[in-house]
């Protein structure tokens, strides 16, 4: 079996980020303490999810332009894998919130934005399931994903800036960004982001190939 260099990189980086993420010395900060290590696990999930959802959007647009089913398969599979990463992001965030804020969920612009985006993509999958004709399904779900993605972008990018947020990086709360300046953390965080993103691409790649083989055999 031939394994390409980027897949090896993905495995090495993810393993490194998990091992080093638990072992390195982190800045001792009030309230955060050891939970600051969540940076390596929680934030990377969201980065990977956003990348996959953008891939899904771009392939939706390409489908509307070319009407090639290849783009539709990529759009669907990256949305599905994006949802999995999103759920992992919610779980890691929730555990972190319980230990620092004292609640699994708080009413906060960023958290609600994340939950609403998840609902949008669940609706996207449901919409796909409601149609049988594959070209019709591809076209209509592409229209919905472009429409929904643009509105969610406004929600996630602009609304939290209008209000205060508890989330690190907003409203004077300690942000991870400041502690990225800590060079040891940076040496784990950046490889972790790249590793998980490559991992996400790999998963989508496998799923797209499975779909194509399944299509060949009816």
């Amino acid at each position: 079996m031939k394994i390409s260099w980027w897949k090896i990189t993905a495995i090495v980086l993810v393993l490194y980020s998990i091992v080093a993420g638990f072992l390195i010395d982190v800045p001792r900060l009030p309230i955060l303490h050891e939970t600051i290590r969540n940076l390596f696990f929680h934030v990377t999930m969201w980065f990977s999810m956003i990348m996959l959802l953008i891939v899904s959007l771009v392939n939706g647009i390409r489908y509307l332009g070319k009407a090639d089913m290849h783009y539709d398969i990529i759009a669907e599979e990256s949305a599905r894998v994006g949802i999995v990463f999103g759920i992992l992001g919610l779980i890691t965030g929730s555990i972190w919130a319980k230990n620092t804020w004292g609640a699994w969920w708080v009413n906060d612009a960023k958290l609600n934005g994340a939950a609403a985006s998840m609902l949008v993509y669940f609706a996207y999958i449901l919409l796909r399931g409601s149609m049988d004709d594959e070209h019709k399904r591809a076209r209509i779900s592409a229209v919905y994903s472009i429409f929904a993605f643009s509105l969610m972008l406004v929600f996630i990018m602009i609304l939290p800036r209008l209000t205060d947020s508890l989330h690190p990086g907003n409203g004077g709360n300690p942000g991870f960004g400041r502690y990225d300046l800590d060079n040891t953390m940076r040496m784990v965080f950046y490889p972790a982001v790249i590793g998980w993103m490559l991992m996400a691409v790999w998963i989508v790649n496998i799923r797209v190939r499975i779909r194509k083989i399944a299509n060949q055999f009816g």
Binding site: S130, I140, V143, V154
Partner: peptide, 23 residues
Amino acid sequence: AIASRAGNNTTLMAILSFPILIP
């Protein structure tokens, strides 16, 4: 318009619209 293309049911309409109406 999207829901009417996808089988005309009102449940679909609510599911598709509520999350993007939140903002």
